[in-house]
Nucleic acid binder design. Sequence first.
DNA 1: TCAATATACTTAGCATTACTAAGTAAGTAG
DNA 2: CTACTTACTTAGTAATGCTAAGTATATTGA
Lengths: 143, 143
Amino acid sequence: MDSIEDIASGLNSTAIHLIRRLKRQDSQLNVGPARLSALSVLVFGGPCSLSELARREQVTSATMSRIVSGLEQNLLARRLPSPHDARALKIEATRTGRQLMLKGQKARVHSLVKDLKRLRKKDLVCLQQAVTILRQIGGSAPD
Amino acid sequence: MDSIEDIASGLNSTAIHLIRRLKRQDSQLNVGPARLSALSVLVFGGPCSLSELARREQVTSATMSRIVSGLEQNLLARRLPSPHDARALKIEATRTGRQLMLKGQKARVHSLVKDLKRLRKKDLVCLQQAVTILRQIGGSAPD
DNA sequence: TCAATATACTTAGCATTACTAAGTAAGTAG
DNA sequence: CTACTTACTTAGTAATGCTAAGTATATTGA
């Protein structure tokens, strides 16, 4: 077996390649990566405040404010007043936003499925387990 | 076993989380992501022309020209004339650049190793195999 | 109650990184 | 030698990150 360092290094480069491959699919949506990522939080995690969104995306509130402005211009999300706190916002995806997100997700997954289909069943089981293992470690990572 | 779609979807979100985690380490280097990524090509792949670098990083030559200018300002890489073609450049990492890259690589790997150490041997073997499997598919991805 | 503080968000200014379009210099083909 | 191609740069625009500073609302405590 490789050393733990080798495995970590392998995970590093593998993740880089995987992400690059998946990003190529996103480019057809004509929405920047920051907006797409924030939108996915809204679609899969439900509406939330701007600061909560900023925290999950690990950017400052100032940056998130502009990302949300961009999403609004693209009609993918909207700002609503928060029911309990007049300072805060409730940000939610529009119908268009949900549709775009699901379309993008489909394209990403499809591009991977094409390659996974060429694998033996044994290898698929291995990847499935690997995903489960990696989900457990680093659980602090936001969505 | 999950469907192939589920596994693909799992790989997608796992890669996103992994990358985000690793990027946090990079932020301490005070070099932007595009420069860091280009520098890694130079350090681990050796000197190459600007267009070759652009091709590997999947950006236009115009974009790469500015990234290389940034690397030069940071004293991390230098432009040299290409021996065989007066139009082209040979771009190479400086000693400082190599050192910075290796330091960054170490930080990335170290942050993962800390978590991997908590896993059982069986799980480590699984991750190692997963890396091997993922290296084979999508081999067209650049470095 | 009211003043001080804290929290939520926005705006402005700067740097990086992406694009296209347009320009320069050098190699190649007829 | 002319026309074309290739390699790179520069300029202009847009998206995305930051910090600093401002506004509005909530909370705390004398």
